[in-house]
Design a protein around this nucleic acid. Structure first.
Length: 837
DNA sequence: AGCCCTGTCCTTTTT
DNA sequence: GGACAGGGCT
């Protein structure tokens, strides 16, 4: 209802128009402006809408100023979306919102202003995981710990878990202190933190931990933020970890104007320290908190919602919500069994093709494409969905209506291959991030090294990239020399040389924090180059490299940072190296570098650019064209699609084996929440599938349907097989029995040929590959399976050696003549076309 | 130093 | 199927 439909007498008193589109619960959540508020928002109940409207309401009622609202999200994307939607409500003049961002970006900003309080300079670098691991590796090696037995990765995980709980080295509980390398854990942690200080760097966890430290030790600093920030808003509160909780509590404690929004059923980040407890405990932590439940779902049709609700009800210890929808029942959730991962990919691709070529019913009225927070049913107004700037005409089906959501990233490959073969456009959500690509990181390392010579990690990354003959041996020597304690930095400008002898002036010096300060790698190189300790070749190469660095640093004073980057990439031989690289990736890498140089132009200085890369910027051209969306379940949170495919519902895959092994019942419940998140992404159709055979670690394995399939409510599920793909006995008895329950009469090898299958053969032919065998079904016997029934004369297909003819069968061993190599091999793990007989 | 081959581990999920 | 380490060779 819009304002001008109201009687004139009521207009003056009428609420702002944005409130009129809310339902009573949403409105209650928006209008409770002060005091602690907990909004329990089930999937698809308009959570983001409430958050953004509340923020807009705070501003337009004058209760808060744009610069006094702290609004925290977990991802940059969510932050961006929130900002855009507030602007839609209030107009772009709405004003800046400087404190809207992720926990990490906001905290990084705060830390820049108070860095010296924790012994950092305000130019500190933020290390990414890669840097972090390499640093830890060095520390582990320096401590003479076997890095193979105690991998740096594991240590990184341990440190993370401590930092997630805001445990500085001195606060690590005694019983945990000995978890790594027979008791070296805390010692390594301490050394690592010292190294970080020397490098003037911090990692992701430090951003929050340092700020908590500062807030706790410096009441005056905390007070300035209490004065500055009048209202706090937190998205996805169920995903906060202890550190984030402490950070928030410290900031909120003075005014208590804290509003958190979340859903305990969607807590899926336990493994990175998220504490569902935070949301379960909110009322206790903030007495007098108002609690608003949002239970009316505007996203999914009835069957889908019911299936999800029934599944999640298997979890214990929930706050409990009863989601409901006034929407129609729609289609039941489809559960389908298939032969193997390839068949699954074929099936999904075929369904997608059928969808876009309009052989499936039209989308339901009023259901367009959109991001999260589809317009409330009472106002099916396209302008209400700012997240999709150009909504396609209703009723037109496009690839981006479809999403394939997998448990783990490796499961995407089968779908990518299939989509490529069929020329189905797809996009991987949150795929390899631009700034994590090797070439981009190399370029950054050069720039970091120009900015600051002390950046040892950057130095090591690029001394021999491109190859210039400075190998590992030389780097080792540099390390040894840099670590020699006779000589210390006396100043921040590097080691002092005696003007007469060229020798280094020695001195003992302690860096702040008690860490002994050694030379940087560059400084060590400068010294060693003057000696005879290096082989001539390495020495010359190193000297040339040092000269390059000096020249570029000089250059950086006179030219723009963009030009500088271009020069470096050119003169270092990096671009040339890529141009000479014949591999197919080299081209993309060159393009990435071009894009990098371009994106640098958006920043005024090199400093500004480098400060933003690690956290804020994600270059992912958000051009969500007409692509099928491929995503992990985790990355799919907050998104929605008309069609959602949920493949790989098999025991040990989903629920993941590790999750249960490591966290038992708790882990299983989190997996179940993940399943819940998956199903609730679907608006109109959810397709769950499981395979009987799957390649794991490149080995074929027989797998069982996921227990979650059994937990779905039969009334809302269609368990059928449309595939016609063969299910044959042998090695998969149990799976097959269960398959039969879901897919009665699936039949044997009916040589089903989908349109997609035919196209695949055509395309394969075009590319010069032999077309696949018609109606090929594959049986994979595990080695040691007494039921193998291959016979002499059968043609088989082997993963590694291709097609061949069985010459002899002895027990489980087959002797095969392979077409390609013309060789005879004994095989005990094989794949056979069922139609081979 | 650097390349290529072989064998050994793996793999959740991300700011 | 792929990352990575170690060995052997140029």
């Amino acid at each position: 209802m819009s304002e001008d439909t109201l009687p004139i007498s009521q207009r003056a008193a009428a609420a702002p128009p944005y409130l009129a589109t809310l339902n009573p619960e949403q409105r209650a959540a928006v209008e409770a402006l002060d005091g602690p508020v907990l909004v329990l928002a089930g999937a698809g109940t308009g959570k983001t809408r409430v958050l953004t409207t509340r923020l807009a309401h705070l501003l337009s009622t004058g209760r808060a100023k744009p610069w006094s609202v702290l609004a925290v999200t977990f991802t940059n994307k969510a932050a961006r979306e929130m900002r855009e939607r507030v602007e839609v409500l209030l107009g772009p003049g709405g004003g800046g919102l400087p404190w809207l961002g992720t926990f990490h970006s906001i905290s990084a900003r705060m830390l820049r202003t108070h860095a010296e309080l924790v012994g950092l300079k305000n130019t500190f670098t933020i290390l990414d995981t890669d840097d972090q691991i390499r640093l830890l590796k060095q520390i582990i090696e320096a401590e003479n710990i076997d890095e193979k037995r105690w991998p740096a990765r594991q240590l990184a995980g341990l440190l993370d878990s401590w930092k997630n709980r805001a445990l500085t080295p001195d606060r690590v509980p005694k019983n945990e202190a000995f978890q790594f390398a027979d008791g070296a854990g805390v010692k390594l942690y301490t050394l690592y933190q010292q190294r970080l200080k020397i490098l003037n760097a911090c990692d992701f966890g430090d951003l929050l931990m340092h700020m908590i430290d500062i807030f706790q030790r410096h009441a005056d600093v905390l007070e300035t933020y209490h004065k500055k920030l009048s209202h706090l808003l937190v998205d996805e509160y169920q995903d906060t970890n202890v550190a984030q909780y402490l950070w928030l509590r410290l900031l909120a404690q003075a005014r208590k104007n804290l509003c958190v929004v979340g859903d305990d059923d969607q807590s899926i980040y336990g493994w990175r320290g998220a504490e569902v407890d935070n949301i379960l405990r909110f009322e206790h932590d903030f007495p007098g908190a108002q609690v608003v439940r949002l239970e009316r779902n505007y996203r999914s049709t009835g069957h889908i919602l019911a299936a999800a609700a029934h599944l999640i009800a298997h979890n214990r210890g929930r706050l409990g919500k009863t989601l409901f929808t006034d929407d129609e029942l729609g289609a039941r959730v489809k559960v389908r069994g298939v032969w193997d991962g390839e068949a699954e990919a074929r099936l999904v691709a075929d369904d997608i093709e059928a969808w876009v070529s309009a052989t499936l019913p039209l989308p339901l009225a009023g259901r367009g494409l959109g991001g999260e927070g589809r317009a409330n049913a009472q106002t099916p107004d396209v302008s209400d969905r700012p997240s999709s700037p150009t909504p396609p005409p209703l009723g037109r089906r496009i690839y981006s209506d479809c999403a394939v959501l997998v448990r783990a990233a490796w499961q995407m490959r089968a779908f990518e291959e299939r989509f490529l073969m069929l020329r189905i456009p797809y996009k991987v959500i949150g795929g390899p991030r631009f700034f994590e690509r090797a070439e981009v990181r190399d370029a950054h390392a050069y720039l970091r090294l120009i900015r600051s010579e002390d950046d040892d990690l950057a130095f090591e990354r690029v001394v021999n990239q491109p190859k210039r003959g400075v190998g590992e041996g030389t780097v080792q020597k540099l390390h040894a020399h840099a670590g020699k304690p006779q000589v210390r930095f006396v100043t921040d400008h590097g080691p002092l040389f005696d003007a007469e002898t060229g020798e280094v002036v020695t001195a003992q010096d302690e860096a702040p924090g008690g860490a002994t300060r050694f030379r940087s790698m560059v400084a060590a190189a400068r010294e060693l180059v003057l000696t005879d300790e290096l082989p001539l070749k390495a020495k010359t190469a190193l000297r040339a490299f040092l000269n390059d660095l000096d020249r570029w640093r000089e250059l950086s004073r006179s030219v723009s940072h963009v030009e500088l980057a271009e020069t470096i990439l050119d003169e270092s031989g990096y671009t040339e190296m890529l141009r000479n690289d014949k591999s197919p990736q080299a081209q993309t890498r060159l393009e990435n570098l071009k894009e990098l140089v371009q994106s640098m132009g958006q920043y005024d200085t090199l400093e500004a650019y480098l400060e933003h890369v690690s956290l804020v910027l994600d270059i992912e051209a958000e051009s969500e064209g007409e692509n099928v969306q491929l995503s992990t379940l985790h990355a799919a949170k907050g998104l929605e699609w008309p069609l959602v495919f949920l493949p790989g519902w098999e025991e040990e895959v989903f629920p993941s084996k590790r999750s249960i092994e490591e966290s038992g019942e708790k882990g299983l419940e989190e997996e179940r929440r993940l399943a819940y998140v998956g199903i609730t992404r679907a608006r109109e159709r959810a397709y769950i599938s499981f395979a009987a055979n799957r390649q794991i670690y490149g080995r074929w394995q027989t797998v069982l349907p996921s227990r979650f399939i059994d937990e779905l409510p039969p009334a809302n599920v269609d368990a059928i097989s449309e595939t016609g793909y063969a299910m044959q006995a042998g090695g998969v008895r149990e799976a097959a029995a269960r398959f039969d329950a879901y897919a009665p009469g699936a039949g044997f090898n009916s040589a089903y040929q989908s349109p997609g299958w035919r196209r695949a053969q055509e395309n394969a032919g075009k590319r010069g590959k032999p077309p696949m065998l018609e109606g090929e079904a594959r049986l994979i016997a595990k080695s040691g399976d007494e039921d193998s029934h291959y016979q002499r004369g059968d043609r088989i297909f082997h993963q590694k050696f291709g097609y061949g003819l069985i010459r002899a069968v002895e027990g489980n061993k087959l002797t095969v003549d392979f077409d390609k190599a013309g060789e005879k091999r004994v095989i005990d793990s094989f794949v056979i076309p069922a139609s081979a007989a």
